[in-house]
Simulated assay, not measured.
Amino acid sequence: MRIGELARRTGVSERSPRYYETQGLLAAERTSGGHRDHPEPAVDRVIRIQELYAAGLHSERIRQLLRCMRDQDGGPSASATPRPVEDLTAERARIDRTSSSARPATADRRTPERPTHQEAPVPPVRP
């Protein structure tokens, strides 16, 4: 399938699969005219990549994990070992530490003149 169809079916821009290819996350054959031709499993692969980016992982870590994952359901592939689970647990702890250390800095920037969305007054509901 061409890159436009892959992008449409996965909800990403056409630039994303190109980027994934440069990062070694996605492979494509080339037509005689030089166009990318993605196999059907690329749809599951792009969705999986998006999920891993959304979880806070970077390209290198995703590349390592994809070798051990099935694209269709994210489960472990036949080549999976306990090591990726240990690595993911450590990665999650790192993300949690980064996230919790960022919260106080954000809280310090709030002022009474500039309430956050949660602090904004809610207008009364009229019957």
Rank of each mutant, 00 (worst) to 15 (best):
D37Q: 12
P39K: 09
I47E: 14
P41K: 02
H38A: 01
G33E: 05
G34D: 04
D44M: 00
R48E: 06
A42H: 01
A54H: 09
G34T: 02
D44H: 13
R63W: 04
R36D: 06
H58G: 15
L57K: 08
S59N: 10
A55W: 07
S59G: 12
R45L: 03
H35F: 11
L57H: 10
R36Q: 00
A54E: 12
V46W: 00
R36W: 02
D37Y: 10
L65M: 10
H58W: 13
V43K: 10
L65R: 05
Q50I: 05
D37G: 10
I47R: 15
R63M: 03
G56W: 04
Q64N: 12
I47Y: 01
A42D: 05
L57S: 09
L65Q: 01
A55V: 04
A42G: 06
E40W: 06
L57D: 01
L65F: 09
H58N: 15
P39A: 11
E51D: 09
A55P: 08
I62T: 01
L57P: 03
A42N: 01
L57Q: 06
Q64V: 13
P41Y: 08
D44N: 05
E40M: 00
R61W: 05
L52M: 12
Q64T: 15
L52I: 03
A55S: 11
Y53V: 15
Q50E: 14
A54M: 01
P39L: 07
D37A: 11
I49Y: 07
I47K: 13
D37F: 02
E51A: 14
G33R: 09
L65P: 10
L52P: 03
E51Y: 10
A42F: 00
G34V: 04
A54I: 00
Q64A: 15
G56F: 02
A54N: 12
E51C: 12
A42W: 01
E40R: 12
L52Y: 08
A42L: 06
G34Y: 10
R36E: 05
R48F: 01
E51I: 09
V43G: 09
L65A: 08
E40K: 10
V46R: 04
I62G: 07
E60D: 13
V43T: 14
D44T: 05
R36T: 04
V46G: 02
V46I: 02
P39N: 08
I49A: 04
R63P: 01
Q64S: 15
H58P: 05
D37N: 14
R63D: 09
R36G: 07
Y53I: 15
G34K: 06
H35S: 07
S59R: 08
E40H: 02
R48V: 05
D44W: 09
H35V: 11
E40V: 11
A54D: 09
R61N: 06
H38F: 15
R36A: 11
G34L: 09
S59E: 07
H35L: 11
H38W: 14
Q50F: 01
Y53S: 12
H35T: 00
I47F: 04
R61C: 03
Y53M: 13
A54L: 09
R48L: 15
L52R: 03
V43W: 10
D44Q: 12
I49Q: 08
G34Q: 03
L65D: 04
R61S: 11
I49R: 03
A54V: 00
Q50C: 13
A42T: 05
E40T: 06
I47P: 09
G56I: 10
P41V: 08
I47Q: 15
V46Y: 01
R45W: 02
R61F: 02
D37S: 13
I49V: 06
E60L: 14
